[in-house]
């Protein structure tokens, strides 16, 4: 499973159960994910990938599942 798939599945199941999200959909500016949801996502990322985006991330990383996945790869030293 790719990071994108894992994230989409987690967010659709635990954060936005009504309707879910797609890989490219805007998370924050669409209002789908609020601050509580964001913390859930950050917790999941930390647990799954050992990456703390709260300390290293920039706002652009949080736009969509795709940008989150790139940020995770970048933080792990992989090519985004």
């Amino acid at each position: 499973m790719s990071i994108e798939n894992d994230l989409t599945e987690f967010i659709s199941r635990d954060v936005v159960p009504e309707g879910g999200v797609t890989e490219t959909e805007l998370l924050i500016s669409s209002g789908k994910v609020d601050s509580l949801g964001l913390l859930q996502i950050l917790g999941f990322i930390e647990q799954q990938y050992g990456v703390t985006l709260l300390t290293s991330g920039s706002p652009k990383d949080f736009e969509s599942v795709q940008t989150l996945a790139s940020a995770i790869r970048k933080a792990r030293g992989e090519s985004a």
Binding site: S35, L38, L53, L54, T55, S56, G57, S58, P59, F62
Partner: peptide, 14 residues
């Protein structure tokens, strides 16, 4: 500073 930006420590210093 938005609530999202406000949580991102390294971004804030930058």
């Amino acid at each position: 500073i938005s609530s999202l930006e406000g949580m991102l420590a390294a971004h804030l210093v930058k």
